[in-house]
Design a protein around this nucleic acid. Structure first.
Lengths: 208, 208
DNA sequence: AAAAATAAATTACATTTGTCATATGTTTTC
DNA sequence: GAAAACATATGACAAATGTAATTTATTTTT
């Protein structure tokens, strides 16, 4: 018997899912919730085999809730439900160690997916896996906002990540070498890094 | 009813699988084969819902057979069976559009995977998805020989690529800071690079 | 055992890097 | 128009880096 918890913003969806899944004689729904906070509490209370959770929810969204649960229960098997196949979410889900990502629309594929995940597989929609290579290579420049970097600062970061020294960067940007150093000093401060090598490392770990 | 064809080099495995899977009342095994050539012929003859195929086979291997089948039947749902989770194969399988990659060992997860794939999902082992990002970016680590780097030199490179300065690397390796500088100087010479930042960049472009 | 190679260290030096205080125009904002 | 914010620059300084020559001990080869 596979013990499942369902968490969905829309209570109607959660109940529909419960009904559909309980038609399978090997799946039991322990509880349903409707926000990330519910997910965390219910997970702790029941320790289900699988947590089926929506991604978009008010209050605490599914991804953040998933992160918290996984930090406490690294073995947690979390299957995300979503309406659209949103690149950004998918990458985060994969990165955090979610076991799958299913479109809500295909009701009929949820039960098989739960079974597969229960047996140690990871389940992603076909079209998702197909786009994965390009998605992973695409830079997510969103961190630019997160770290409050200006466009010019980011440009300098790219030059550093290309292995250029201050003189070369200065020449490339028609600025003095001292200015580049000042910029870099500020960039390092913003990113809490020590030197240009750590900056390059940071770049390759975050922007590739 | 899901119609499946099984192709495995080892006839015993193929028959075991047939037996196991036929225990599921919604799976029917239309035929079994034992090489890539069989896979192609059987696929054309039966057009099954799912082709369950070993990767390593004499004559025509599973990947090449899969390629040929997919070129003729782009909608083919091919699930690969394998003994080891071999990075190289996985990438090829994903790239060609296979629907999954299952370790033979876990008999019990094959049926759920077939169901999930039948319903349009893609099924990969958890550990495979986890390593995917790095796998996709990975270049060949054979460059170690190509550039004539010693194991210790390579170790230092990894530390540099981690953002450590000479003092920290020295402490980590129980060597003096001067020695690290000497090593680094030689590494840079060998790799035709100018400074540690370029070395880190080189590392991330070649070894990840 | 002698010679050669290797690993590690030291010293010295030039260069690069990162930081900080400060200066100077140029825009923006009030 | 004054004040604030911004972009750029400079000089000074300590620290880190990269290079080279040399030394010492250890291991390997002959």
């Amino acid at each position: 018997m596979i013990n499942v918890i369902i968490v969905d913003d829309d209570n109607l969806v959660a109940l529909s899912l419960k009904t559909i899944l309980e038609a399978n004689e090997n799946i039991a729904i322990l509880a349903t919730g409707e926000c990330g906070q519910d997910a965390i509490e219910l997970y702790k209370k029941y320790i289900p085999d699988i947590l089926l959770m929506d991604i978009r929810m008010q209050e605490l969204n599914g991804l953040d809730a998933g992160l918290q649960i996984l930090s406490q229960f690294p073995e947690a098997k979390i299957l995300f439900l979503t309406t659209f196949s949103d690149d950004e979410y998918i990458l985060k889900a994969i990165h955090m160690g979610a076991k799958g990502y299913i479109l809500k629309q295909n009701f009929e594929c949820i039960a098989p997916s739960i079974n597969a995940v229960y047996n140690g597989q990871t389940v992603f929609g076909t079209e998702i896996i197909g786009r994965l290579p390009e998605m992973i290579n695409r830079k997510n420049n969103l961190d630019l906002e997160k770290y409050d970097l200006s466009e010019k600062e980011f440009e300098i970061i790219r030059y550093v990540a290309d292995g250029m020294n201050n003189r070369e960067i200065a020449a490339a940007l028609f600025l003095s070498e001292g200015t580049i150093r000042n910029y870099l000093s500020i960039i390092l401060e913003k990113l809490q890094l020590r030197d240009r090598t750590q900056l390059a490392v940071f770049y390759y770990k975050h922007y590739i």
